[in-house]
Structure formats: C-alpha cells, structure tokens
C-alpha cells in the first residue's frame, strides 16, 4: 500500500504551491497517472479525498487523467497505446496489453515509451 504515502507527497506539493501563490482555496487538483505504473488511481483518489479535508484543499475536486504510453517500433512506426486498449469499444484494463504488441507495419515487437508518470499536472486556485 504505497498509495497513501504518494498521496501525502502529492498533497504536500499542492499545499506548498497553493501557499507560494497566496491562494485562499483550491478548486481542483489534476493528476496524470501512467498506465504502466502500479499506482492504483482509485486508491490515490480515496487517499486524497481523505487528506484534503483538513487543509487549504478542502472541497477541491480531484481529477485523474490516465497517461497512455506511445508504442514505438524500430521500423519507425508509432501509435498511441490508447488505441490498443479497445476491442469492440470495450476497454481492456490489463498492463500486458502494452507489453506484447506486434507492429502492424512490420511485425516486430513494439516498445512502450512513457506511461510511468505520477504527475501533478495543475491545480486551480482561488486568490
């Protein structure tokens, strides 16, 4: 369970950015979570919802965007991995989806670039 300590670190950062900008409150916190990390977005959300209650971020909306890797092939072909996650409009929620992908152009195994992020993208404050 490391989501709690990651959430604490995120909240510490949000508070210090808010204070540096003499905020009166925080309306929203937007995070990006890479699909190739083992970070569980639901748990991060739960921890942040709890942590925000006793500080300047009280009442802030927490928005989590998923960051997909880009699939790259040695032949030069690239594709957003998001396209690979859908079969008949149904999303496949499995990390293996990105690990064993053959290039549609040349058949080689593609390499996933990115998707390892846990980033505080932005915060919306009231001044």
């Amino acid at each position: 369970m490391h989501e709690y300590s990651l959430a604490c670190e995120i909240m510490d950062n949000v508070i210090s950015v808010a204070e540096e900008n003499t905020a009166k409150g925080v309306n929203s916190i937007t995070l990006g979570v890479g699909r190739l990390t083992h970070v569980n977005p639901d748990q991060i959300m739960f921890c942040l919802e709890t942590l925000k209650e006793d500080n300047i971020a009280k009442g802030a909306e927490i928005i989590i965007n998923e960051i997909y890797p880009e699939m790259q092939c040695e032949c030069g072909f690239c594709e957003d991995a998001k396209k690979l996650c859908f079969v008949d409009d149904e999303i496949i929620d499995d990390i293996r989806t990105f690990l064993d992908v053959q290039c549609p152009q040349c058949g080689q195994t593609m390499h996933a670039s990115g998707g390892h992020e846990l980033v505080i993208e932005s915060i919306d404050i009231e001044q």
Binding site: L6, N13, V17, L118, V119, E121, D124, I125, Q127
Partner: peptide
C-alpha cells in the same frame, strides 16, 4: 475572487 490555474508538472515518481 480570482481563479487561477497553475501548471505544476511535478512527477512524484520521477522525484525518486
């Protein structure tokens, strides 16, 4: 009251 979006861009895992 002024609303203001601040781009933070801090990656918690990259810090490690």
């Amino acid at each position: 009251m002024l609303m203001h979006v601040i781009n933070v861009g801090h990656d918690v895992l990259k810090a490690n």
